[in-house]
Design a protein around this nucleic acid. Structure first.
Lengths: 341, 341
DNA sequence: CTTTAGCACTCATAAATAGAGAGTGCTAAA
DNA sequence: TTTAGCACTCTCTATTTATGAGTGCTAAAG
């Protein structure tokens, strides 16, 4: 890409750093004062004009300072960004959080809490996609009789994920027949991925056992829902944080984002399609148009070496990238240990 | 309370109705034009001055129209409010929604969907408190062995609510001993309310079975959490709707509410403490200070004739009360039928 | 050739001023 | 008791007028 000489890079870095902090267009004088580049304002002015022409900076209006363009941020993130840093307190806070998380048993709780922590630490909005189990495989199905009419079906995956439902028992079935059906299903389905329990496969089973159709359809419904179902739930944290950003002082701007936050499926799509590792999408690099004024930093977390979920931080393009990245890496990697249940 | 003569009531009603629609202070002329009270603007002016002195109206500034005071809204809601009305389409929409809800099995889904519907219909923000099971009684506990090391504990309440968890089995225990423990617990706890499983009671059991302490503590943990635990989860719908209200065009105003929306426990408290039936809290009648510019209309829904949850709509004090009340009653009562699982 | 000082110019933002309009309260007549 | 008339208040909008930060360009200095 661009062959920015050393000086241009330093200046660009200064502009981005300053703008991230102040949210105000930064002028040539401000830079020559605040950053010890040993250059006069005039020189910096010239370089900034160049940087603008190259597409790394923009001017809100003719006689204002410069602000980084999307391309400017991109270059900053790829090449200039300073080393990460967390304060002592933050480290301590994180450590404390993780011991808390360890204690929690309910996956929802863990995810929810993670979202909260992520937003508190970054002061942006956080998105957390709970673990996806559709890639895990069918382990077994159990039927626990509750009374004469009802029973509890328990579906267990290889990853230990459990789903249950109460179903009605047809009176006619003896308990023996019941256990036959269940063990038949267990045989047939063992080792299949949940995702792979496609409708056609299930339909075939259905015809195999057509005599027991009523009971069976209830069982199958549970399975079917497990494969499609709303596992992709996204938990949000710090949604009100965006209101602290000066770029969202206008209510109209916020409205689009807020509305987006209510559309779980679109959010989960964004997170599901993030690559393994940390990914950074700046401005219009985001597919979702509502996010085109924002940057989204995401990371996936693993479960037995397979990515099963993702966490993300959404803020203005003027985001404290290095800080956010550090935090998100930290949390994602620890989540690997916590989510083993 | 106040002995408002007929004419004053009519005028107050006109002011409130108009203000609810327009969100603009309403003047004497506007009323004499728009409402056929056959009175001149001057007369209305006099009456409005009286109404202000009596505390039902306020003036934003000396030469502006009047807007209803909190007391004004209260009187309107108690005495003046017009009859409810829903359009054909809305009725149809509702009917359709209910058939959809009937099909859903997962309680979370139902609650979530209800929140959404409520917010779409009212165009305010909706709060839905999922069914509370702490008043229901312990029915039975089951242990489903998964493999040699692990087992699934299933806790079932009289209302059919189910909670499960995987626990580790101490190697030393024979399956016979296991079932002994479980049946002992079943005996001891049968019929107790979940809430009543207080720490002391559980501690006593713990000492009874101190020999099996390791296993037991896992079981008891599940119970304990069931009695305290986050059952009081509140689902929100249409949070971005508040941004459409002109009274929240200022970001600062919104921020407080948005932040409140992230504090689940406070929200659930509000809903838990609402009376059976429909309740309307206007402005500072709300205990939560962040809501003092809002009105909250809530209704509880039943399960076997006992209130177990609540739904609510939060909007500006300038709310379409009669409309909201109709909708909320409608939905709450239907929820009674849907939530029987 | 690069850097810097100097200077005119641009443009947003803020403060000051002037009208316009909506609505009131009061008085006096119907 | 009601209504018409009128002066008065106060917000809101538009216009004007500074102010000042920051630029681009030119010409001199290194």
């Amino acid at each position: 890409m661009a062959g920015l000489n050393d000086r241009k890079q330093k200046i660009l870095q200064a502009v981005v750093t300053d703008y991230i902090q102040t949210a105000e267009p930064v002028g040539s004088r401000a830079i020559s004062r605040r950053y010890k580049l040993d250059l006069s304002a005039a020189t910096i002015r010239n370089e900034m004009a160049d940087l603008e022409e190259l597409g790394f900076l923009t001017q809100p209006h003719t006689s204002a300072g410069r602000i980084p363009s999307q391309q400017g941020y991109r270059f900053y993130v790829d090449a200039l960004m300073g080393p990460p840093s967390l304060s002592r307190q933050e480290e301590a806070y994180l450590a404390n959080v993780f011991t808390q998380l360890q204690k929690m048993r309910e996956i929802d709780q863990i995810v929810q809490q993670t979202a909260k922590v992520l937003s508190v630490l970054t002061s942006y909005t956080s998105l957390v996609l709970g673990p996806q189990f559709r890639h895990s495989t069918f382990k077994q199905m159990r039927l626990v009789p509750l009374d004469e009419e009802k029973a509890l079906v328990v579906l267990i995956t290889s990853t230990g994920h459990i789903k249950h439902r109460v179903i009605n028992l047809p009176q006619a079935l003896s308990s023996q027949e019941l256990s036959q059906i269940v063990s038949y299903l267990n045989e047939q389905l063992a080792g299949q991925t949940i995702e792979g329990l496609s409708a056609t496969r299930l339909r075939q089973l259905r015809s195999d056992l057509y005599a027991r159709i009523e009971l069976l359809s209830q069982l199958l419904l549970l399975l079917e829902e497990s494969s499609t179902d709303g596992e992709g739930r996204v938990f949000l944290g710090g949604t009100s944080n965006i209101l602290n950003q000066p770029e969202f002082k206008d209510v109209e701007k916020v409205k689009h984002l807020l509305t987006l936050f209510e559309e779980g499926s679109r959010l989960s799509f964004v997170l599901e399609t993030s690559l393994a590792g940390v990914s950074i999408r700046i401005g219009t690099e985001n597919v979702i148009t509502e996010m085109s004024d924002c940057s989204l930093v995401t990371a996936t977390y693993q479960l037995s070496n397979r990515p099963v979920g993702a966490i993300g931080v959404l803020g203005p393009t003027r985001m404290e990238y290095s800080r956010v990245i550090t935090i998100i890496e930290h949390i994602a990697s620890h989540l690997n240990f916590v989510v083993q249940d």
